[in-house]
Write a protein that binds this DNA or RNA. Structure first.
Length: 777
DNA sequence: AAAGGGGGGATTTTT
DNA sequence: TCCCCCCTTT
């Protein structure tokens, strides 16, 4: 143990040795906070604290797992496995399962992910016959989420005239009813959404003092990582649990608080000293991760924020290269810059793919990057976005499994009751829903009793309903004795899901089947892993317990060498030698939706701080002057954040903007999705396309479009000569597409196009001014 | 009841 | 550009 402690610097050692009482560690980026937390926990155990008495809350499951592994290395795995370590959501889901009966929930309650919640809300709005344009499901859901995270129950809502008035003012007078219906519907389904996991924990601890006492006594030492991103609900749980022993250690960095949009309250960390008596404060300010240039540049950014704790991050590392700033004309070109830079760096400095990360503000930006990387044959992995477990085909399987565990789960039932199609249509489902509401039973219960209630269903439909019930029940029987892998494999076959997918022979369809195979492999791993755990048998219930809480970050098992692509939010806590922060543009980063208030802008700035401090050695900031946004080419200005960095830390790779300012030469409404970078550089009628285009080998179609005219009276070349000669029926030869026959001609003058059916590659429309065609017959 | 086509909306971030 | 929902047709 001593050797681990002696490896720490002074500032790190102090909080490790501070055993009791409330304490806060303000940890700058890259200051070794995970290390401090790990060693602190190990040291607590070394001093005789039972692992059962330590609760450690992290921000992601992955962080928990990694920390647990590191602790195992120090104290041995048999000791470490008893630690309570995980996210708020997963830890309290576990506690709620064992205490569920007190709240009237089954212990096998379902956890609704945001998709489920949204569908439930949409359904309610439809049932209430409200206007979906006024009551936008997404908005409603996020409002309900805000309520729950602030512990505003339905009852509290109706006791608060201000809230009701606010909703009435925004033309949503029935907000409260929707909230009520949503809560009822979840309860009836035996389901909790993400926010419920925290809200119900609070309810449990408040309403049942003996339960509170039990967990207070159990968790004598509590550690909370990323405390700056806790919300009010989480804050109250921590307060309640730590109240008796006051051995609470929170770790965080106010400069890295980036989740206010989902209710995180930065004041939790700013005010921690006031919440407990005799708080000891520790600061970790030495950065071990990044070069001096990056650390100091990041400091100049965060200095712009007013709301912050007193802290100066510094480093003893070497200066390193300056931050490189690159401007490009389009998002596609930005992608090419990133890809070719990675390519060159790998060549020149023997770097691996895994040493690069591409970070962006929005998931939609990944596409341009993916395209560019693919063309360079650089392997990559995208994190986040639509997670694996939310893909349609996976979700379908999971919903059948959810029904096996909890047949009251209405969202699951609605999703699969007629998929694959089995003749149970909207009308029937409608009748079932009405009956369920009438009898105050779940839809599944109504279906079980379908022969005893008169719903004016014809016998064929009744038979289909009975078949469905029988099928689910047969799964339940099998589930009693078999493990999660067996039942999942069985379900995916017996429900016809796999056969359904096999009908689709497209690459997308094949990918779906592969995804299901991947799911099965994952479950196989899980069941085998569970066998090693005491008392677990790898059952479906064990697997389903927290799939809703699993993210892609958690199933990152492959150790393949790939470039990482992810949002900045997802990158928090990670580090890479080379980091590209792309899309450094106004309205994108900072986001157009986060510039109305100072605090929103400050959060964006913290987000930028997080992005930059992920880099160990080299950071790149790139921006494009125009990019595709919702399908349209839009112009953009460089992000203010670039200017906010002291110029001494930057190296501009592209000439100053004023010399190069691109003036659109064409009306983009007329030419649609014209790629400006090509327009500027393309010599319209050169015999070969510009070199970089051939390098990248775009699809033929794409190239045609990219070579559209610079102006309506562009110089004409050989192709132009065909204007009048070419007629439908001609056999022509094209440089790239080969032999084909003209089917049709349309347009006049410069816009004249020929529709040509090529022997290879099908029918294409070519602008005659550009198409290099030889008439051969 | 099923399937396919048309129209409208979306993009800020996630446990 | 893509995805989802609704409406139409069969």
């Amino acid at each position: 143990m001593q050797q681990y402690i002696s490896q720490l610097n002074e500032a790190q050692r102090e909080p490790v040795l501070q055993k009791d009482g409330p304490m806060i560690i303000i940890a700058g980026a890259g200051s070794g906070k995970t290390r401090v937390l790990t060693i602190r926990i190990a040291y607590l155990m070394h001093q005789g604290i039972d692992a059962f008495n330590i609760l450690s809350l992290t921000f992601t499951n992955k962080a928990a797992r990694e920390m647990k592994n590191r602790i195992s290395d120090i104290v041995g795995s048999s000791e470490a496995k008893n630690l309570w370590m995980g996210t708020f959501h997963s830890i309290f889901a576990r506690i709620l399962r064992s205490e569920a009966d007190k709240l009237g929930y089954p212990s096998n309650f379902t956890i609704y992910d945001s998709q489920d919640s949204l569908r439930a809300i949409s359904g309610i709005i439809k049932e209430m016959q409200l206007d979906r344009d006024v009551y936008k499901p997404k908005q409603i859901l996020s409002r309900i989420s805000t309520f729950k995270n602030s512990l505003i129950t339905v009852k509290a809502y109706f006791n608060d005239p201000d809230l009701q008035e606010a909703d009435a003012m925004s033309k949503k007078p029935r907000m409260g009813e929707i909230y009520q219906n949503y809560v009822d519907r979840c309860f009836k389904s035996g389901a909790m959404d993400f926010d419920d996991l925290l809200l119900k924990t609070n309810e449990l601890l408040t309403r049942f003092p003996e339960v509170l006492a039990k967990y207070q006594n159990r968790f004598r030492y509590i550690l909370v990582d990323e405390y700056q991103d806790t919300n009010h609900s989480q804050y109250l749980i921590v307060r309640a649990l730590s109240d008796k022993f006051q051995n609470i250690c929170v770790v965080g960095d106010d400069a890295q608080s980036i989740y206010a949009f989902r209710g995180a309250n930065i004041n939790n960390i700013l005010n921690f000293q006031k919440d407990y008596q005799g708080v000891k404060t520790f600061r970790l300010e030495q950065n071990y991760r990044s070069s001096r240039n990056i650390v100091e540049a990041a400091n100049t950014i965060i200095d712009k924020n007013k709301t912050k704790l007193d802290k100066v991050v510094w480093t003893a590392n070497e200066f390193g290269p300056k931050i490189k700033v690159h401007r490009s004309l389009t998002d596609a070109e930005e992608g090419r810059f990133v890809a070719s830079t990675i390519f060159e760096q790998k060549m020149q400095n023997q770097m691996t793919n895994g040493q690069f990360a591409i970070l962006y503000r929005t998931n939609a930006q990944s596409r341009a990057m993916e395209d560019a990387l693919r063309k360079r044959d650089i392997p990559y992995r995208i994190y986040g976005g639509l997670s694996f477990y939310q893909r349609k085909e996976i979700k379908d399987v999971l919903c059948y499994l959810r029904l096996v565990i909890n047949p009251k789960d209405e969202e699951a039932l609605m999703r699969v009751i007629n998929y694959p199609a089995r003749g149970i249509g909207d009308t029937t489902v409608e009748k079932l829903t009405v009956a369920a509401n009438h009898y105050k039973r779940s839809i599944f219960e109504v279906m079980q009793n379908i022969d005893r209630i008169d719903l004016k269903l014809n016998s064929g439909t009744k038979q289909k309903l009975n078949d469905f019930v029988t099928m689910i029940q047969s799964f339940q029987v099998i589930n009693e004795n078999q493990d999660a892998f067996y039942i999942t494999d069985h379900v995916s076959k017996k429900t016809g899901l796999v056969q359904e997918l096999k009908k689709d022979a497209t690459p997308e369809g094949m990918a779906k089947i592969q995804n299901i195979e991947e799911l099965l492999n994952g479950i196989k791993d899980f069941t085998e892993g569970q066998r090693e755990i005491d008392g677990a048998r790898g059952s479906l219930a064990e697997f389903m317990e927290d799939v809703a809480l699993a993210t892609d970050l958690d199933k990152d098992t492959s150790d393949e060498d790939r470039v990482a692509l992810m949002t900045i939010h997802l990158a928090k806590g990670l580090e890479f030698p080379h980091v590209f922060v792309v899309g450094m543009e106004e309205d994108l980063f900072p986001s157009a939706m986060s510039m109305s208030t100072r605090s929103e802008l400050e959060e964006e700035r913290r987000l930028f701080y997080v992005a930059l401090t992920r880099a160990e050695h080299q950071a790149y900031l790139t921006y494009a002057q125009s990019r595709y946004r919702w399908g349209k080419l839009t112009d953009s200005e460089p992000s203010r954040f670039i200017e906010e960095i002291d110029g001494q830390f930057l190296e501009y790779l592209t000439p100053a903007e004023s010399n190069y300012r691109f003036k659109p030469m064409i009306d983009k409404d007329v030419f649609g999705d014209v790629d400006k970078s090509k327009l500027r550089l393309a010599k319209p009628l050169s015999t070969t396309p510009p070199k970089y285009i051939t390098d990248n080998q775009p699809k033929p179609e794409a190239q045609i479009r990219k070579l559209k005219p610079v102006s309506a009276n562009a110089p004409s070349g050989a192709a132009n000569l065909f204007d009048n000669k070419l007629t439908a029926g001609n056999i022509v030869m094209h440089e790239r597409f080969g032999r084909g026959q003209v089917i049709n001609l349309e347009g006049v003058g410069a816009d004249k196009k020929a529709e040509i059916k090529f022997e290879v590659g099908g029918i294409k429309k070519l602008l005659l001014r550009f198409a290099k065609l030889d008439i051969i017959g």
